[in-house]
Nucleic acid binder design. Structure first.
Lengths: 349, 349
DNA sequence: AGCGTTACAGCAAGCGCTTTCTACCTGATG
DNA sequence: CATCAGGTAGAAAGCGCTTGCTGTAACGCT
């Protein structure tokens, strides 16, 4: 039924070993033989049996990419960049690897299960993207898993995620969420804002905490009070931004600016503000984070911090493939760039 | 170094066969034995070797999901829905499958290469999403590939993609792009629009052609002429929408409406119109297609056709897993729903 | 009491490939 | 002309798991 290596070998009148060597190209094979084999492969329309070769060679060509939410462009952009470097199809010659994107939906259990599944497949590499959950039990479980993966020869790279505990020899490309958050708030302070609402992401995420820390650091640096009523936690989606904004307005109708956890949330915030009859930025300013493609299209265009998602993803992909040296110490911080646009202005009055 | 089935067997004092059967749960094993085995698995922290079991069982637990652009929420949403049904982690009990998302970037070659890679992995199922390329050579190549996959036992499902040629026994869930396009244009015509520009997607995609056909059908039904100068082809991104709009305006400054190939393009169109000093919908109306999450947030909110991406994806996923009966004849058409919002209005004058 | 069943467990034969080691042939070398 | 190195090809031993088939003990039946 299915064509095997042996069939090809028979047809090319060589041994299976030779066919295997032609296909893997890591052993000298005379040009004429090679050609004969290749022809047989073609004629028989032979496709290597992945599991069999993975078993025999004890390595596979799978590369896992874990994302929190595949429907969110933040992750989609990184995943696309990573996958483009994984080689896979379209990549440069050699090592055709299958970059597989796994959607954890932000669930710690799913994250762990996917890691096990990848471990089971003996993945060549794993890239984890996005913020981590701060629950210590889970963090420990992940760290253990990563260490096992690494022990089994799987390269582990973290992209846009805080470094794993020492010992897990995972390379980490971390976004400077703290610095970005600080820049944003500093920008607002410079414009003259003093009463700012903050819409945070899910409380247990590192990303949430770091961005919020940046915000608070900016407040502190300028001697501004940090009123706890001015912070509302939510999810990283539009809906959450909408609701959180209404809540903030209820708590303090005199806010002059809203700082959102990310661009998607900021969009929800804008909608809520408009629905509340406020004009942006005349009555109230709004800032986001990430600079996703749609942010420049918002009306008014969103002031935000651009994160080089594509670049970081590509680099993570290359490191995962062993095509680029990991940064010294295994950790690199990727900074964002403040993009000042129409959604921020001088406060009224 | 690595723990194998045999190690577990030794520890549990049973044969490897028994361990395998406990793990696969498809053969009677006494409760006490099972428990002993499970304990051993736990103690040794054993992880099944995927390739080995795939080889021995001649099936794997990989399910491929092909998308054109993973950074585009249109695909992201479908992929997330499909993956959630693949079982994978978080899914209901049994068959833990690894749903892998492959990003073709719209390239026919990559599409083919990914299919080969999945064939090589002996994937349990493959779901292809989004429009197909109409180049006949490529279509034939894909059809051949799909047929081979099917022959090898891989279930093939098309989601939001036209049915494959007969013979390829692939299940198809097709979006009614033609009908949607027609509804949109009919809505504009009813509002009184007569001069409408159309921004199409890439010319070789089926989606592009179908939506455009719907538009033209509506024009024809109302006896309106179809001026070729009123159609511009581009890509499915914002930039393309922006540029195409400027081009349309150049060709006919008196347009009263712009019909965009999808919401992303529509957003670009809105930006171009605003930059040209036109107000939406007072001076000119705009419609999109898909109803992606951000469309309701545009200012004004976009009139568009909602496609049940999540539902269709979930259904495709279930069919791929064999958990739902394929539609009769293997083909189902999924209709969109017209969402009338602020971006369309009665034309001026 | 004897025999057919049922319920489990084990044996062993692969699944299709990679890779080490060995064998061979050729041409170069002394 | 004998010897040796270099370059190629083959034989065969697994890789770790699944599964058909073969026991075997316990049970229920006539």
């Amino acid at each position: 039924m299915t064509v095997t290596l042996a069939d090809v070998a028979a047809r090319a009148e060589v041994s299976p070993a030779t066919v295997s060597r032609v296909l893997n190209g890591n052993y000298p094979v005379a040009a004429s033989t090679r050609e004969r084999v290749l022809r047989a492969v073609d004629e028989l329309d032979y496709v290597l049996n992945g599991p069999a070769s993975a078993l025999a060679a004890a390595t596979s060509d799978l590369v896992g990419i874990l994302v929190n939410d595949i429907a969110d462009p933040f992750f989609g952009i990184m995943a696309a960049a990573i996958q483009s470097e994984i080689g896979g199809p379209g990549g440069r010659a050699g090592g055709e690897r299958l970059g597989v994107v796994c959607n954890t939906g932000g669930s710690p259990e799913r994250e762990l299960t996917y890691l096990t599944l990848l471990q089971r497949q003996r993945a060549a590499a794993v890239v984890l993207t996005g913020g981590a959950v701060e629950d210590s039990a889970h963090a420990a479980a992940v760290a253990t898993k990563l260490r096992k993966l690494a022990d089994a020869g799987t390269r582990v790279v973290l992209c846009g995620r805080p470094p794993a505990p020492a010992g897990t020899d995972a390379v980490a490309l971390t976004f400077d969420n703290r610095g970005g958050g600080q820049q944003l708030t500093e920008h607002l302070i410079e414009l003259g804002h003093r009463r700012m609402g903050y819409i945070a992401g899910p409380e247990e995420r590192t990303t949430t905490r770091h961005r919020l820390e940046g915000h608070r650091a900016a407040l502190a640096a300028h001697g501004l009070p940090d009123d706890p009523r001015h912070t509302v936690y939510g999810r990283y989606d539009r809906r959450s931004g909408y609701e959180a904004t209404l809540e903030l307005l209820r708590r303090d109708p005199d806010l002059t600016a809203v700082v959102a956890a990310n661009d998607t949330v900021a969009l929800g915030a804008c909608a809520a503000l408009r629905d509340s009859g406020l004009r942006i930025p005349d009555d109230i300013s709004v800032v986001g984070f990430d600079d996703l493609p749609f942010s420049v299209d918002a009306v008014p265009a969103l002031t935000t911090v651009r994160l080089p998602l594509s670049e970081a993803g590509a680099r993570a992909g290359r490191i995962a493939m062993g095509r680029e040296e990991p940064p010294p110490g295994g950790i690199a911080t990727v900074r964002g760039e403040l993009m000042v646009r129409g959604s921020t202005g001088v406060p009224k009055g």
